[in-house]
């Protein structure tokens, strides 16, 4: 009886999740009348705008990951080593982006850093890109910080640091050569989530008028019949790949921990 109910719940759930995936795949293959074809994909891949926006978002993702690592690893390390008493506060702050809607944050950016403000970031292309990068970094903050913090907790930060200091290493060297390699797996898992988030992000890029993948998807959705579904399948594949790699990395870290 219990088992039957469990199967029923699971099957209903799976149906709900699988149908939209089938739906979008089916549509993406239906461009040619009466038969399945990859025409929509061919169209999309041949679209120069696709390549531009896709490339833009990939570069932004990688830069967001870089900013996240440079910002989060030293901070989490320092908090763990010297300021453990404020860890709850830092944790709370890093969770705020889950609570403050992205649209509010970016609205604040536009008004705070507009052309007539003290720091006119939106006045230049460079500045707007930088602002978007910072926005993406806030979005990835909860995931990045949690991943790194968990990773740091698994190693003995204090002993490693003191051992390195006794050998004459400076802070930069300690971070780069001692701490980073030990939390690399954690950083990678945070990085994959960040990549998935940035690739699909729409609101910030759209409101800052940057040619990212998310706004491009929306534009296509408003104007084309079959291409959007091909794009959705591609986006799903990217998310799947990121999460697959995330899982792989997490599992790998468990194995190395067990071995060590």
């Amino acid at each position: 009886m219990k088992k039957f109910a469990a199967w029923a719940i699971l099957l209903l759930g799976v149906t709900y999740f699988v149908l939209p995936l089938i739906g979008m795949t089916e549509f993406s293959l239906s461009m040619r009348r009466g038969e399945y074809s990859f025409d929509a994909y061919a169209k999309v891949l041949a679209d120069p705008q696709f390549r531009q926006t896709f490339g833009y978002s990939v570069i932004m993702s990688l830069m967001t990951i870089a900013v996240g690592v440079l910002l989060v690893v030293p901070t989490a390390f320092w908090v763990q080593l010297r300021l453990p008493q404020i860890r709850p506060l830092i944790e709370f702050i890093t969770l705020l982006p889950l609570v403050i809607p992205a649209i509010v944050t970016v609205f604040g950016y536009i008004r705070l850093y507009n052309t007539s403000s003290w720091l006119p970031l939106t006045g230049s292309l460079w500045g707007t890109n930088f602002l978007l990068l910072m926005g993406y970094s806030t979005l990835s903050l909860p995931y990045m910080y949690r991943a790194v913090d968990t990773g740091l907790r698994a190693i003995d930060v204090r002993t490693l640091t003191e051992a390195a200091q006794s050998l004459g290493a400076g802070w930069v060297l300690i971070l780069a050569r001692v701490i980073m390699p030990n939390v690399l797996v954690a950083v990678l898992s945070g990085a994959f989530v960040t990549f998935a988030i940035v690739m699909g992000e729409f609101t910030m890029a759209a409101l800052l008028n940057r040619p990212a993948f998310g706004p491009y998807l929306q534009l296509m959705g408003a104007n084309k019949a079959y291409e959007p579904f091909a794009l959705a399948v591609i986006a799903f594949a990217i998310t799947w790949a990121c999460m697959g790699l995330f899982q792989l990395v997490t599992r790998f870290s468990k194995h190395t921990k067990a071995a060590g």
């Binding site: 739906g23 549509f27 959705a232």
Partner: peptide, 22 residues
């Protein structure tokens, strides 16, 4: 694993998937 994917599969593509379905 699937939950990890689906919870991050939001935004524009998700809307397309449901348009294609419902």
């Amino acid at each position: 694993t699937f939950s990890g994917v689906a919870s991050n599969f939001a935004g524009v593509p998700l809307a397309f998937a449901f348009l294609a379905t419902l």
